[in-house]
């Protein structure tokens, strides 16, 4: 595959980036969502307990640093706070506690600068469905300061690279399959050559070949365009193949962090196995952690023993 000739992102011209800064520094970030109360009950005073019940701590005191040109994966069960975290990095949600810095710029105070450095692909392909991929991407490109002619050329190139047939480029997007739409979404983010790319389950719903296409593309973006990438995924093979490091998040907290090989060894050691375990088992191990109470740790002597007992119990139940 030929490498893509993306011109330097013209938005970055008048932004100075201090090479001493890491790409992403997340420092003690939390996000709490409140469910709204029914209108009539607002007159009554509410007990503290009930109030806490209406709160969801979606992200809970997260610290994470991503170095330049690093590909970091965020793994976690449904509802563990991955998308919420990504949204706070993309200036779409304001954290309740803590700070986020992107290449040294604060996501709230320097919102305008941060927006020039990043782009994000969300799990659902969000487009004007009646418009064609070309029209949708042209709109995006203009928002990111590209001229029409330059954009049209790049859009065709990038969509073709991702395997979209030429006759599809000008037909309404609603007729495309979900996977194809997702590819257009990925193209839209790549088009603006962000130096930090936030990918929220970008390959969910793609066939195996398309997944590899996207992974190749992500790697290329890092290797050729010096991009830093933060990616969430439910595909453990993908995490292993793509990520330099992964963070496992559970109930809004980071419960493990490191290279995939290292994590596999750690979990094997905990379980007293000689062979490294699979990434799937690593995931199961850490995301089951919240099931273990302090009481159980006391009862079984150590956390590891409690975990083993719990796993055994689960196997028995099955």
């Amino acid at each position: 595959m030929a490498t893509l000739d993306l011109e330097m992102n013209s938005l970055l011209k008048d932004i100075t980036i201090d090479p001493a800064n890491d790409a992403v520094v997340i420092d003690g970030v939390s996000k709490i969502f409140k469910k709204s109360r029914p209108l009539l009950s607002r007159w009554h005073k509410e007990a503290v307990e009930a109030k806490q019940k209406r709160e969801v701590r979606a992200v809970d005191n997260v610290n994470l640093t991503v170095k330049r040109r690093e590909i970091v994966g965020i793994l976690g069960a449904n509802g563990s706070g991955k998308s919420t975290l990504i949204r706070m990095l993309s200036t779409l949600l304001i954290p309740d506690e803590g700070t986020v810095r992107i290449f040294g710029y604060d996501v709230i105070k320097d919102e305008a600068v941060v927006q020039k450095l990043i782009n994000r692909v969300s799990v659902e392909a969000s487009f004007f469905k009646k418009l064609s991929p070309m029209e949708n991407l042209l709109y995006a490109a203009r928002l990111y300061n590209m001229s029409g002619a330059e954009a049209r050329k790049n859009i065709r190139e990038i969509l073709t690279r991702l395997g979209i047939k030429p006759d599809r480029i000008d037909a309404p997007l609603e007729d495309m399959s979900r996977g194809m739409q997702q590819k257009v979404a990925i193209a839209r983010a790549f088009l603006t050559s962000p130096i930090l790319l936030l990918l929220d389950e970008p390959t969910t719903g793609l066939d195996p070949r398309s997944k590899i296409d996207v992974q190749t593309f992500v790697n290329e973006l890092r290797d050729v365009h010096d991009a830093t990438i933060l990616i969430t995924t439910h595909d453990m093979d993908e995490a292993e193949a793509l990520c330099d490091r992964v963070a496992i998040i559970d109930k809004g907290r980071i419960v493990a962090m490191g290279e995939t090989q290292a994590l596999k060894r750690v979990v094997a050691d905990i379980r007293g196995q000689v062979e490294p375990v699979s990434m799937n088992e690593v995931f199961m191990h850490y995301t089951a952690a919240h099931l273990i109470t302090e009481e159980q740790v006391k009862r079984y002597g150590s956390w590891e023993k409690a975990f083993e007992a719990l796993e055994a119990q689960r196997e028995e139940e099955e």
Binding site: L92, K116, I118, S126, F127, A140, L143, Y144
Partner: peptide
């Protein structure tokens, strides 16, 4: 259409 986040994330005033 579901594009609101994409537009609000764009680097424009």
């Amino acid at each position: 259409e579901g594009t609101i986040e994409h537009t609000f994330m764009a680097p424009i005033s």
